[in-house]
Design a protein around this nucleic acid. Structure first.
Lengths: 343, 343
DNA sequence: CTGTTAGCGCTTTCAA
DNA sequence: TTGAAAGCGCTAACAG
């Protein structure tokens, strides 16, 4: 910057004023500065700028699994809201590991993002770290991360309600042997969708059969990772081989449901006549499956949008704000994989 | 930091040495420093650190469309390679707009990332900006972004070959009226997959019928945006209403192909007997479609991995390196949507 | 309208 | 093994 100042014959401060378009600078000086800036292909050092200004106009978003449409829609919504208020967005991926969770927090906060949105699953060491971040006065908002802190806003879809309604729907159709694919009963405490399933069964006095609840066991982390087509496929195979197989399946998410559908088709059974299947999320491809996939739609964009708004509110407020908690309703989407078409 | 130094009774430099684990510090002083660091919940300012060190140990990745499995697999591979060498990864999304492309470059470079991987589609102003970044000695690597610069490495799948083989496959099956969905002929220059299609037709002296090439016209940008299920669905509807409809379809990507499949099913025609369909990318769900989707698999992870390696090589080298160009082969994956099962 | 001063928080370099 | 000095590149605050 001082190079430019010298070349033009002004003080660095004047160059700064031109670049930031604030303060008064004469038309003449402005033009000369700008032309030298172009000539020298000058680009200002944002690090120094941020260090001085004590802000970066940037927010960070930590995602667990980027290959999940839920995460990506979230990211798009957050980005939109941030851009609208002139904030940049940096995204980090943690791949569902507590260690990488922390690495992501660390790298974002050490770059002094003005605030942080966290959309990874809760884990103890990560939660601990988040606390210390907040105590350093960096605003944090959590999406679907199930832990409580007085100064961290919380947004989530109502997975409990969604899981309940999905299961209720299957019960309404007359099913009594209903399987769950995507997690095991050990994960109950951390998985609202599974809780919703169990609640619905309980309400209708259907006995819970633990052989009907299947998924990958997370021995190492204790945290149920994201569930995939593969898990759905394998889980369904297992359930189909039971002496008294289920007649309906609630899958933890649509990918799992789709894997399960493939397993059912391979076995020669029909969907939904022999096995009804419902997923969760309503990914864009759900409607293109054959049969089209019944599912529970969660408001992905809305969650991202609200998170961004709450975060920016915290960033731009001086006072200590009270914790906000938003639990958004899910919507049951009934398609052919649970109800056969009447002609 | 000076707070800590004062509390412990040493110089800030000593604290710095403890935190960076370099230089000699007595066991005693180290322990006292670390305990005060914990006590005060101190977190060092990465901005100041980076400003002084002239590096951030961070690389940036700019993605066009995050909801595309191609992008996300890329991101995961890049992240893996970066993490392995102790670099952080910041991801920005540009949503396929030239303006936001530049905003992403700007925000990453102004935060002084040590290098940049760009995986968005080429556009003139963005290309211009990338040039100026390189001239500021920030290493840049491009993935699938079709523009040439002496100091920018280039990685891409061989879309030309892939498009050719997909079309060739349909021709081998006896098809002569083959449609393309996902772009219009105006985009030929920028879309290798479309070129591959045209080349294959030409080689077999099949006349090109422009009514068989359909997609959304990008009037505003001139850049063909990402093609979706919706475009596939609508494109297929259009092609099916032609007096002499195509008997086979090459879709620009799997999402487009899946949308097209839905349109075909709705019309009561059979896949592949009445209309054969092949896509591109081999997204994880392709194999779960009914019928399962034939496609062209591109090495997504490999592209990301190579890009990261080339970038880190540039970052860690002092000399001016020559441009590297890697074009990776695609693989034809034949499934039920083009070839009916023989029993 | 423009310039001067000071300092953001850290680390490199040199000295003890 | 530790410390002092200097400065990374920028801008807030004040002065003219």
């Amino acid at each position: 910057m001082s190079d430019i100042a010298t070349t033009v014959g002004v003080a660095p401060m004047t160059v700064s004023r031109v670049l930031n378009q604030n303060g008064y600078v004469s038309e003449d000086v402005r033009n000369r500065v700008l032309s030298v800036v172009k000539e020298l292909n000058y680009r200002r050092n944002g690090l120094a700028r941020s260090l001085k200004r004590q802000r970066t106009d940037t927010i960070g978003l930590v995602l667990g699994d980027i290959s999940n449409p839920y995460s990506t829609e979230l990211a798009r919504a957050v980005r939109e809201a941030a851009t609208a208020k002139n904030y940049n967005l940096f995204i980090c991926i943690s791949e569902h590991s507590a260690q990488e969770d922390i690495a992501a927090f660390e790298s974002l906060t050490s770059h002094s993002v003005d605030g942080l949105i966290v959309a990874t699953r809760a884990n103890d060491s990560g939660d601990e770290y988040l606390k210390s971040i907040v105590e350093n006065n960096v605003p944090v908002v959590a999406i679907g991360r199930d832990f409580y802190h007085e100064q961290i806003d919380y947004i989530s879809a109502d997975n409990l309600q969604g899981g309940f309604e999905a299961t209720q729907h299957l019960i309404d159709l007359g099913h009594r042997r209903i399987g769950f694919i995507g997690a095991t009963l050990e994960n109950e405490a951390k998985l609202k969708r599974l809780q919703g399933y169990l609640n619905a069964l309980e309400k209708h006095r259907i006995e819970i059969d633990e052989r009907l609840v299947t998924g990958r066991r997370e021995v190492r982390t204790g945290v149920p990772g994201y569930s995939t087509e593969k898990i759905g496929y394998e889980g369904m195979k297992r359930l189909l081989s039971l002496p008294n197989r289920p007649t309906a399946i609630f899958a933890r998410n649509d990918f799992t449901a789709i894997g399960a559908m493939t397993a059912v088709k391979e076995s020669g059974l029909r969907i939904p006549q022999d096995v009804a299947i419902i997923g969760f999320d309503d990914i864009p491809l759900a409607v293109h499956m054959s049969p089209s996939l019944s599912t529970v739609r969660q408001p992905m964009r809305l969650q991202g949008q609200i998170a961004a708004e709450l975060l920016l509110r915290r960033i731009e407020s001086d006072e200590d704000l009270l914790r906000e908690e938003k639990i958004l309703n899910c919507e049951l989407i009934i398609r052919e994989s649970t109800v056969s078409l009447k002609i």
